[in-house]
């Protein structure tokens, strides 16, 4: 991608999403920060992505009963149900 000094919203969302899967280089992080500073839409998008990250972490915990939280009241106790 040709790096401009100002990112479009489309570029920003792409980088925000890539940030979930790779460490963004400093230059890209700065450009994203600058854009988020003045763009409400992208700030909201960024918050949505954070929420999804938290949601996936929560889902992994629910899927793994080693965690305290009750996985949606599903049959998690082995042998507690009869087939």
């Amino acid at each position: 991608m040709p790096m401009r000094l100002k990112l479009t919203c489309r570029d920003t969302t792409r980088l925000v999403l890539e940030g979930e899967d790779r460490a963004l280089p400093l230059g890209e992080r700065v450009l994203v920060r600058v854009h988020l500073g003045y763009c409400r839409g992208c700030r909201r998008f960024n918050q949505q992505v954070s929420l999804m990250r938290g949601a996936m972490a929560g889902w992994r915990q629910l899927a793994d009963p080693a965690d305290d939280r009750d996985p949606a009241g599903q049959r998690t106790t082995p042998g507690s149900t009869d087939a």
Binding site: R44, F45, Q47, Q48, S50
Partner: peptide, 17 residues
């Protein structure tokens, strides 16, 4: 490259999570 529609405010994450 601008949003067609501004993304919605999803509010406090703990409400959903």
């Amino acid at each position: 490259g601008h949003w067609q529609e501004t993304p919605a405010d999803w509010g406090n994450p703990s409400a959903a999570l």
